[in-house]
Amino acid sequence: MRMRHAVIGGLLALAYVLSPSAHAALAGQESVDMAVQILAEGRLDDGRQALVEAATALPPVEATRLLRMAQTLAALHPGMRPTAARAIVLAHRGSVDRATDALVEAVEAADVAEPGQGAALLVFAARLAETADQHERSEALYTRVVEGHRESASWPEAVLALSERRLAAERDLSSAATDLEDLIVERPTHPLVPTARLVLQRLQEAIGR
Protein backbone atom coordinates (compact mmCIF):
# COMPACT_ATOMS: atom_id res chain seq x y z
CA MET A 1 0.00 0.00 0.00
CA ARG A 2 2.76 2.41 0.95
CA MET A 3 4.55 1.57 -2.23
CA ARG A 4 1.38 2.22 -4.19
CA HIS A 5 0.98 5.62 -2.55
CA ALA A 6 4.59 6.40 -3.29
CA VAL A 7 4.20 5.44 -6.92
CA ILE A 8 1.02 7.44 -7.23
CA GLY A 9 2.61 10.36 -5.47
CA GLY A 10 5.62 10.12 -7.72
CA LEU A 11 3.50 9.97 -10.81
CA LEU A 12 1.56 12.98 -9.60
CA ALA A 13 4.75 14.84 -8.89
CA LEU A 14 6.06 13.92 -12.32
CA ALA A 15 2.84 15.10 -13.89
CA TYR A 16 3.08 18.38 -12.04
CA VAL A 17 6.66 18.86 -13.06
CA LEU A 18 5.82 18.15 -16.65
CA SER A 19 2.72 20.32 -16.63
CA PRO A 20 2.92 23.80 -18.22
CA SER A 21 2.08 25.59 -15.00
CA ALA A 22 4.80 23.75 -13.26
CA HIS A 23 7.20 24.68 -15.97
CA ALA A 24 6.08 28.16 -15.74
CA ALA A 25 6.42 28.22 -12.01
CA LEU A 26 9.86 26.81 -12.21
CA ALA A 27 10.85 29.13 -14.97
CA GLY A 28 9.44 32.08 -13.04
CA GLN A 29 11.34 31.25 -9.94
CA GLU A 30 14.55 30.99 -11.87
CA SER A 31 13.95 34.39 -13.39
CA VAL A 32 13.39 35.90 -10.00
CA ASP A 33 16.54 34.37 -8.72
CA MET A 34 18.43 35.70 -11.68
CA ALA A 35 16.98 39.16 -11.23
CA VAL A 36 17.90 39.23 -7.57
CA GLN A 37 21.35 38.08 -8.45
CA ILE A 38 21.73 40.97 -10.88
CA LEU A 39 20.66 43.35 -8.17
CA ALA A 40 23.12 41.80 -5.81
CA GLU A 41 25.81 42.53 -8.34
CA GLY A 42 24.95 46.17 -8.15
CA ARG A 43 23.43 46.43 -11.65
CA LEU A 44 20.35 48.18 -10.48
CA ASP A 45 18.76 49.13 -13.78
CA ASP A 46 19.29 45.73 -15.29
CA GLY A 47 18.14 44.11 -12.11
CA ARG A 48 14.99 46.16 -12.08
CA GLN A 49 14.31 45.25 -15.67
CA ALA A 50 14.95 41.62 -14.86
CA LEU A 51 12.46 41.80 -12.02
CA VAL A 52 9.84 43.10 -14.41
CA GLU A 53 10.58 40.40 -16.93
CA ALA A 54 10.49 37.78 -14.22
CA ALA A 55 7.11 39.05 -13.13
CA THR A 56 5.67 38.25 -16.55
CA ALA A 57 6.33 34.58 -15.95
CA LEU A 58 4.68 34.45 -12.56
CA PRO A 59 1.08 34.13 -11.49
CA PRO A 60 -0.54 37.51 -11.06
CA VAL A 61 -0.39 37.84 -7.31
CA GLU A 62 3.28 36.89 -7.16
CA ALA A 63 3.99 39.08 -10.14
CA THR A 64 2.54 41.99 -8.21
CA ARG A 65 5.04 41.49 -5.45
CA LEU A 66 7.97 41.60 -7.87
CA LEU A 67 6.58 44.57 -9.67
CA ARG A 68 6.26 46.36 -6.34
CA MET A 69 9.92 45.89 -5.82
CA ALA A 70 10.75 47.09 -9.32
CA GLN A 71 8.52 50.10 -8.89
CA THR A 72 10.06 50.99 -5.60
CA LEU A 73 13.48 50.90 -7.18
CA ALA A 74 12.29 53.11 -10.02
CA ALA A 75 10.59 55.63 -7.77
CA LEU A 76 13.49 56.07 -5.43
CA HIS A 77 16.13 58.66 -5.78
CA PRO A 78 19.21 57.10 -7.38
CA GLY A 79 21.02 57.53 -4.08
CA MET A 80 18.45 55.42 -2.29
CA ARG A 81 18.28 52.67 -4.79
CA PRO A 82 21.24 50.64 -3.64
CA THR A 83 19.69 50.48 -0.17
CA ALA A 84 16.42 49.23 -1.58
CA ALA A 85 18.19 46.77 -3.86
CA ARG A 86 20.12 45.36 -0.94
CA ALA A 87 16.92 45.01 1.00
CA ILE A 88 15.33 43.12 -1.88
CA VAL A 89 18.26 40.77 -2.08
CA LEU A 90 18.22 40.18 1.66
CA ALA A 91 14.48 39.61 1.74
CA HIS A 92 14.59 37.24 -1.19
CA ARG A 93 17.29 35.24 0.53
CA GLY A 94 15.20 35.00 3.64
CA SER A 95 16.69 37.77 5.76
CA VAL A 96 13.65 39.92 6.03
CA ASP A 97 14.66 41.34 9.40
CA ARG A 98 17.97 42.47 8.08
CA ALA A 99 16.32 43.88 5.00
CA THR A 100 13.85 45.83 7.07
CA ASP A 101 16.55 47.06 9.42
CA ALA A 102 18.65 48.23 6.52
CA LEU A 103 15.81 50.22 5.15
CA VAL A 104 14.96 51.81 8.48
CA GLU A 105 18.58 52.68 9.06
CA ALA A 106 18.76 54.34 5.69
CA VAL A 107 15.75 56.41 6.54
CA GLU A 108 17.14 57.44 9.90
CA ALA A 109 20.42 58.33 8.36
CA ALA A 110 20.91 61.90 7.31
CA ASP A 111 21.28 61.18 3.66
CA VAL A 112 17.64 60.89 2.69
CA ALA A 113 17.20 63.43 -0.06
CA GLU A 114 13.49 64.05 0.29
CA PRO A 115 10.91 63.15 2.92
CA GLY A 116 8.94 61.25 0.29
CA GLN A 117 11.89 58.98 -0.24
CA GLY A 118 11.99 58.09 3.43
CA ALA A 119 8.32 57.24 3.44
CA ALA A 120 8.75 55.06 0.35
CA LEU A 121 11.52 53.11 2.08
CA LEU A 122 9.49 52.73 5.26
CA VAL A 123 6.46 51.45 3.38
CA PHE A 124 8.70 49.11 1.43
CA ALA A 125 10.06 47.85 4.70
CA ALA A 126 6.54 47.46 6.07
CA ARG A 127 5.55 45.36 3.07
CA LEU A 128 8.61 43.20 3.48
CA ALA A 129 7.70 42.74 7.12
CA GLU A 130 4.17 41.74 6.09
CA THR A 131 5.46 39.09 3.74
CA ALA A 132 7.39 37.65 6.66
CA ASP A 133 4.29 37.84 8.85
CA GLN A 134 5.95 40.44 11.08
CA HIS A 135 2.71 42.25 11.59
CA GLU A 136 3.70 44.28 14.61
CA ARG A 137 6.77 45.59 12.93
CA SER A 138 4.81 46.26 9.82
CA GLU A 139 2.23 48.17 11.78
CA ALA A 140 4.86 50.20 13.53
CA LEU A 141 6.42 51.14 10.24
CA TYR A 142 3.06 52.12 8.77
CA THR A 143 2.36 54.19 11.85
CA ARG A 144 5.61 56.01 11.39
CA VAL A 145 4.70 56.92 7.84
CA VAL A 146 1.17 57.95 8.78
CA GLU A 147 2.34 60.18 11.56
CA GLY A 148 5.51 61.55 10.10
CA HIS A 149 5.20 61.61 6.31
CA ARG A 150 1.81 63.07 5.56
CA GLU A 151 2.98 64.78 2.35
CA SER A 152 4.57 61.73 0.82
CA ALA A 153 3.16 59.63 -2.01
CA SER A 154 3.23 56.56 0.25
CA TRP A 155 1.06 58.09 2.97
CA PRO A 156 -2.31 56.93 1.54
CA GLU A 157 -1.17 53.33 1.35
CA ALA A 158 0.16 53.50 4.89
CA VAL A 159 -3.08 55.03 6.20
CA LEU A 160 -5.21 52.37 4.59
CA ALA A 161 -3.00 49.50 5.69
CA LEU A 162 -2.85 50.78 9.27
CA SER A 163 -6.56 51.45 9.44
CA GLU A 164 -7.39 47.97 8.21
CA ARG A 165 -5.14 46.47 10.82
CA ARG A 166 -6.73 48.51 13.54
CA LEU A 167 -10.16 47.54 12.33
CA ALA A 168 -9.22 43.89 12.32
CA ALA A 169 -7.79 44.24 15.84
CA GLU A 170 -10.64 46.46 16.95
CA ARG A 171 -8.40 49.03 18.61
CA ASP A 172 -7.72 52.69 18.04
CA LEU A 173 -10.75 52.73 15.84
CA SER A 174 -11.37 56.45 16.23
CA SER A 175 -7.84 57.28 15.36
CA ALA A 176 -8.05 55.05 12.35
CA ALA A 177 -11.30 56.68 11.29
CA THR A 178 -9.76 60.12 11.63
CA ASP A 179 -6.80 59.11 9.53
CA LEU A 180 -9.09 57.74 6.86
CA GLU A 181 -11.19 60.86 6.86
CA ASP A 182 -8.07 62.94 6.44
CA LEU A 183 -7.00 60.73 3.58
CA ILE A 184 -10.35 61.05 1.82
CA VAL A 185 -10.38 64.82 2.23
CA GLU A 186 -6.76 65.49 1.33
CA ARG A 187 -6.30 62.97 -1.45
CA PRO A 188 -9.76 62.48 -2.87
CA THR A 189 -8.51 61.19 -6.23
CA HIS A 190 -6.08 58.61 -4.91
CA PRO A 191 -6.81 55.12 -6.26
CA LEU A 192 -7.11 53.75 -2.73
CA VAL A 193 -9.64 56.33 -1.55
CA PRO A 194 -12.70 54.31 -2.63
CA THR A 195 -11.43 51.41 -0.56
CA ALA A 196 -10.65 53.83 2.25
CA ARG A 197 -14.31 54.94 2.24
CA LEU A 198 -15.45 51.37 2.65
CA VAL A 199 -13.05 50.78 5.49
CA LEU A 200 -14.15 54.02 7.11
CA GLN A 201 -17.76 52.91 6.88
CA ARG A 202 -16.88 49.66 8.59
CA LEU A 203 -14.90 51.52 11.19
CA GLN A 204 -17.84 53.77 11.90
CA GLU A 205 -20.10 50.76 12.19
CA ALA A 206 -17.63 49.17 14.57
CA ILE A 207 -17.38 52.41 16.56
CA GLY A 208 -21.13 52.53 16.65
CA ARG A 209 -21.30 49.10 18.09
Binding site: P60, V61, T64, L67, R68, Q71, A74, A75, A153, E157, H190, P191, L192, T195
Partner: peptide, 16 residues
Amino acid sequence: LQQTAEGALALAERQA
Protein backbone atom coordinates in the same frame (compact mmCIF):
# COMPACT_ATOMS: atom_id res chain seq x y z
CA LEU B 1 3.32 57.61 -14.68
CA GLN B 2 5.02 56.42 -11.57
CA GLN B 3 2.00 57.26 -9.50
CA THR B 4 -0.05 55.28 -11.96
CA ALA B 5 2.27 52.35 -11.52
CA GLU B 6 2.08 52.73 -7.74
CA GLY B 7 -1.64 52.99 -7.79
CA ALA B 8 -1.99 49.98 -10.07
CA LEU B 9 0.18 47.85 -7.82
CA ALA B 10 -1.63 49.02 -4.70
CA LEU B 11 -4.92 48.09 -6.30
CA ALA B 12 -3.45 44.82 -7.50
CA GLU B 13 -2.51 43.95 -3.94
CA ARG B 14 -5.92 44.97 -2.78
CA GLN B 15 -7.47 42.81 -5.46
CA ALA B 16 -5.25 39.90 -4.42
